[in-house]
Design a protein around this nucleic acid. Structure first.
Length: 645
RNA sequence: GCUGCUAUAGCUCAGUCGGUAGAGCACGUCAUUGGUAAUGACGAGGUCAUCGGUCCGAAUCCGAUUAGCAGCUCCA
């Protein structure tokens, strides 16, 4: 006799039975249940219960349930591929955030026609409603089975499993795959799926390995859900900054200038200027000292910092890096060693610390050709860079200040709610290769940072092997419309560079001490931020940062002079105004202004000119009625000052 | 850098079987003087990304390069 505790009720059983049967006995099971959690572990509905257990039934609405569902979809994909192309070798095929993929080693490339054929075969497999059975094998038999099936990658995976690993397989019809599972009960549940694309991906994610063919897909329990998902995806892609940023004339690129070197057009430049002035003012309020340091330096500087050894490939070098009979310069890929010179300018006292240095800093990084993406990944960019030189006891307080500033900036522009935090740590396996310093230094810095993050109540994930070569980071991450994540803000503790540059201060006891350094950004890279803002607001930026805030639309020629007078008045208060004095109908002018997504239109005709008023139309709410210029201006300035979203 | 896709007017895109290029928008001129998402007429605009090859003939087929897109890898 054993007890099974469901959320709703407790059941007692005499003989072992499956989760499905137990749930059936309890009258809890429905078609929607795709898997279960037994004592916290996700299992399939066929999992055998034979002792006391807590069982939570999972549906597609649960993240774990979705995962199981889509993992089965990936097996259906693999089965279809093997039916159509038996010579293709299987590798791995997990569920991911919005779907699943499977990597194949194949000589033929999976173009649209091939994907359509595979989808057709998958439909058949779903219709066949094959039962999915789990079985386990000892290692040698598992290897033998996969060798017989001609799956060398699977053999390799089995060989790499730890000694105590359970080696399980899942079989559906003629198809058997090495897999930890769990899976659905049968293939019939995968009612709606779509293969979305095929791309290359390295075996085991390593550039040195063979490139495989990765087929991406997504799956849902119903066609309606699939359709809704695809529509939502299309909707998101309409916000793609790379598309509307060009259409709305924020930026462009020119073949002759080169990859990763966008031209910021007047609108994009104005937004960045607005953000930059605001961030610089905000930093000034928070005690930052402004610096302006060179964009390049001799190779010797980067040798001291370690960049020459660690990141030469990523730098633009002017001259022959190996010819020591001549000077060799390199454009800067970061600001640290330049800004440190400010501290090093004279002997420093503990009384001067914390020293907060800020700079709107342009950097150059020679990214590989396939890495560039619109304004998000570029070769030249400008960041709100800063370095804080600290006494050790100031570290936590100053780290808090940096985090507060970053959160304030991200919140003000409306991005904070979609940010995630990543505690980026080193990988001891790459000590001495990617990372400098001793394990003791790393453990110390990571311990301090972990404590600070915990004390501040920051919810974070841990990213192993994501640290800088000189220390751990708190990276604030943001996703673009394709779901791809990049760092927008970073706060880093550096325990190495101060030593390399011989930075020290005279402490209260007269002893020379080594300072801690925080590297940080307030709003990150302006180009990247602009890209995310365009996507966040679908091009309709909040009034305070909109490149054009107001457009004056005179109805006829006789209203143009008054229009210019209104424009002038607003401009006197710093408002960014344009006037559309073309010989076009008012309908046309409104349409154009609406498509430009600017916040306010002021329509002026006889009535407004005679009464010294404006007819206000907002992009959001349409016609807002007639009001005096002063009343409009006063509301507008209020909105801008509050940085209303 | 790797895998796949793409490149025709400023923009969005047609262009059939290989026979020397077309629309809408934008732009210019003229007419029109208007009231909350497109007034009308006319006009100008292209070495079909670049270079090379096949062919009597290439926007079209092939190759390379450059640039753009998605993914992988990378991201101080």
């Amino acid at each position: 006799m054993f007890k099974v505790q469901f959320a709703e009720k407790e059941m007692k059983f005499d003989a072992p039975l499956s989760v499905f049967d137990a749930a059936k006995e309890a009258e809890l099971v429905s078609r929607a249940h795709v898997a279960a959690k037994v004592n916290g572990q996700v299992v399939g509905m066929t999992h055998l219960l034979q002792e006391d257990a807590t069982v939570q039934l999972l549906t597609f609405a649960d993240a774990e349930g979705r995962h199981v569902f889509r993992h089965t979809a990936s097996h259906i994909l693999a089965q279809a591929v093997k039916r159509l192309y038996p010579e293709v070798k299987l590798t791995i095929g997990p569920a991911i955030e919005d779907g699943f993929y499977y990597d194949f080693d194949s000589d033929i490339s999976f173009g649209p026609d091939v994907l359509a054929a595979i989808e057709g075969e998958m439909k058949k497999i779903v219709k066949e409603n094959l039962l999915i059975e789990r079985f386990e094998l000892p290692r040698d038999e598992a290897i033998k089975l996969m060798e017989e099936k001609g799956e060398p990658y699977k053999v390799q995976l089995i060989r790499e499993l730890p000694d105590d690993a359970v080696i399980s397989f899942y079989k559906q019809g003629e198809f058997t795959d090495l897999c930890a599972g769990p899976h659905l009960f049968s293939t019939g549940a995968v009612k709606a799926f779509k293969l979305t694309q095929c791309t290359g991906a390295y075996w085991k994610g390593d550039q040195k390995n063979k490139m495989l063919q990765r087929v991406y897909g997504t799956a849902f329990p119903s066609k309606d859900e699939l359709k809704a998902h695809i529509e939502a995806l299309e909707e998101a892609r309409k916000r793609d900054h790379n598309k509307i940023g060009r259409e709305l004339e924020y930026f462009t690129t020119v073949e002759e200038i080169g990859q990763g070197l966008p031209i910021l057009l007047p609108k994009g430049s104005r937004v960045i200027q607005t953000l930059q002035r605001w961030v610089e003012d905000e930093e000034q309020k928070r005690g930052y000292l402004l610096t302006k340091t060179p964009l390049m330096a001799k190779r010797e500087l980067y040798k001291i910092s370690g960049h020459w050894d660690h990141y030469l490939d990523g730098m633009f070098v002017l001259g022959d890096p190996d010819d020591y009979t001549k000077e060799c310069f390199a454009l800067r890929p970061m600001t640290c060693p330049f800004q440190y010179q400010v501290f090093l300018n004279k002997k420093r006292s503990y009384r001067e610390l914390p020293m907060r240095l800020g700079e709107t800093s342009t950097l150059f990084r020679n990214e590989e050709s396939g890495e560039m993406h619109g304004l998000i990944r570029v070769r030249q960019f400008t960041i709100s860079e800063g370095h804080l030189v600290l006494r050790p006891e100031q570290l936590e307080e100053e780290f808090r200040g940096c985090l507060e500033l970053a959160k304030y900036c991200l919140d003000t522009v409306g991005m904070l709610e979609n940010c995630t935090f990543r505690f980026s740590q080193w990988d001891p396996a790459r000590a001495g290769i990617k990372y400098e310093g001793t394990p003791e230094q790393w453990e110390e810095a990571q311990r301090i940072m972990g404590n600070i993050l915990d004390n501040l109540g920051v919810e974070y994930t841990i990213g192993i092997d994501e640290a800088a070569f000189y220390g751990p980071k708190l990276d604030i991450q943001y996703k673009n419309v394709f779901g791809k994540e990049d760092t927008i803000v970073t706060i880093q503790i550096d325990m190495l560079l101060a030593e390399k540059f011989g930075m020290e201060y005279v402490d209260s006891d007269g002893q020379m001490k080594r300072p801690y350094i925080i590297h940080r950004t307030s709003l990150g890279c302006y180009e990247r931020t602009l890209a995310y803002l365009i996507e966040r607001y679908a091009g309709a930026l909040p009034t305070w940062m909109a490149p054009v805030q107001v457009k004056v639309l005179p109805i006829g020629d006789e209203h143009i002079d008054y229009g210019y007078a209104v424009k002038q008045k607003l401009e006197n208060f710093g408002v960014r105004v344009e006037i559309d004095d073309r010989n076009e109908t008012i309908g046309k002018k409104i349409r154009n202004a609406q498509l430009e997504k600017l916040p306010y239109m002021l329509v002026i005709g006889d009535n407004e000119m005679n009464d010294q008023t404006v007819a206000v139309r907002s992009r959001k709410d349409g016609d807002k009625g007639v009001m005096s210029v002063d009343a409009f201006l006063s509301d507008l300035l209020q909105e801008i000052a509050e940085k209303r979203r």
